[in-house]
Amino acid sequence: MAKSVYANRREVLLRSVIGVLGGYALAALAVLLTILLLPAGGRSAEGLGQMIGFSFFGLSVILAFSVRSAKKAWMVVGLPLALLGACYTLLSGGGA
C-alpha cells in the first residue's frame, strides 16, 4: 500500500515529523497565543485556545500527508508555524 502512495520511507518520515510534531507545536502556540490575547478569559480562553489548537493539529496532519511532496508539506505547515511562533515571541517579549 505504502509503496504506491509515497515514494519511500524517508518521504513518510518527513511528512510525519512536520504533520504530527509541527501540528502539535502549532496547537501549543494556538493555546499560548489565545491566553496571551485574552488575559481576562481564564478557563474560557484556555478552552478556546484548545479548540483552535486541536483544529490546527488535525489540519496540519491531513495537509502534510495530502500535498504533493514532503518539501511542500514542510512549507504548508512550517510557514504558519514560523508566523505564529514569531507572533508569540514578539507579544510575550513585549509584555514582559
Binding site: A27, I35, G49, F54
Partner: peptide
C-alpha cells in the same frame, strides 16, 4: 472525538500556565 480532546485538553496541551 473533538469534545473528548477538549475534555482531556489540559493533559494534551498543558500550556495554560495556571
Amino acid at each position: 472525538t473533538f469534545s473528548g480532546l477538549l475534555l482531556i485538553g489540559g493533559t494534551l496541551l498543558p500550556f495554560s500556565g495556571q
